[in-house]
């Protein structure tokens, strides 16, 4: 059963990095589970035996829409040499994405502590990346990280986006980074819906605010499908908020969990299917 009869119903997608196995197996299982879109990781492009061309072919023939490519990490505020390297990397991704018809590239900020981040420099760097992506028909989706030294929440991220002043630069909402800091959708209130390009959803077990090191660990190994952890109702509230402001993009399950990665994709996907159903019920 696929969603999508009602154009206002949320469209769900899933990160291929939430699953284990060959790219082919994952894509088939995702489609069989009733998802019509997938979020790819850089490894999906380079990991196949046949290399990048093989991956491109597989992805195109799966028939799945691609929500986004995740990600260019540790971006912004670096020296000229490192920035030049990041731009070259971004160009490689952008060219691959153009072949795949993937229109959103996710970017995350530096996490290590700089003496003091120059917010204007960060904005300029993001503006450069947004300009670069414009020619390839691709948008940039910037996402703060709860453990980033400087850009760790949505109001800060939005401030930088505004300063960059380039329409091709948007925000990616990841429920994990909101909930890990016990923030509600209110912290998104300043952000116009047309600047939100993607919403990523995941739950986790701890109900209190985790310490920073624990946040990183949970984010990488112990995320859960919405409804399986302590924050299900908050995630339902986030989805209601996004629907309410008119967001019509994808909701992506970004669930990186060691236990689920030990299961066959079809089995791990059962959790995703149940969670999808549970979220839809929460909207009625």
């Amino acid at each position: 059963m696929t969603q999508g009869d009602n154009s206002k119903a949320p469209r769900f997608s899933i990160s291929s990095l939430s699953l284990t196995g060959t790219l082919d197996a994952k894509l088939q299982a995702i489609a069989a589970a009733g998802f019509d879109a997938v979020e790819l990781g850089a490894l999906d492009l380079s990991g196949a035996k046949e290399g990048v061309n093989g991956s491109v072919e597989r992805i195109r023939s799966s028939g799945l829409r691609i929500s986004a490519l995740q990600e260019v990490r540790d971006f912004g505020g670096h020296s000229g040499r490192i920035m030049a390297y990041k731009i070259e990397l971004a160009k490689t991704y952008l060219q691959l994405m153009a072949r795949l018809g993937c229109r959103l590239l996710i970017v995350t900020p530096a996490t290590s502590s700089h003496a003091s981040m120059d917010i204007d420099r960060m904005a300029t760097d993001l503006r450069t990346l947004a300009t670069l992506a414009t020619l390839r028909g691709i948008r940039i989706g910037f996402k703060p990280l709860a453990w980033a030294h400087d850009v760790h929440n949505y109001p800060l991220a939005w401030e930088i986006i505004k300063r960059a002043g380039n329409t091709n630069l948007t925000l990616v909402i990841d429920s994990f980074h909101l909930l890990a800091q016990a923030q509600s959708p209110e912290s998104l209130a300043e952000i116009p819906v047309e600047r939100i390009s993607l919403v990523q959803l995941s739950d986790f077990a701890i109900s209190a605010i985790p310490a920073l090191e624990d946040q990183i660990d949970i984010a990488r190994h112990a995320r859960l499908y919405p409804g399986e952890g302590s924050h299900g109702q908050s995630i339902r509230e986030l989805v209601r908020y996004c629907q309410g402001i008119g967001y019509r993009g994808d909701y992506v399950f970004d669930v990186f969990n060691d236990k689920y990665l030990a299961q066959a994709p079809q089995d791990a996907l059962q959790h995703a299917v149940q969670s999808r159903q549970w979220l839809l019920e929460g909207l009625n």
């Binding site: 503006r127 947004a130 300009t131 414009t134 020619l135 002043g165 380039n166 329409t167 091709n168």
Partner: peptide
């Protein structure tokens, strides 16, 4: 986006 391209 194209507006921004030529202006910026």
């Amino acid at each position: 986006e194209w507006n921004d391209f030529f202006c910026q």
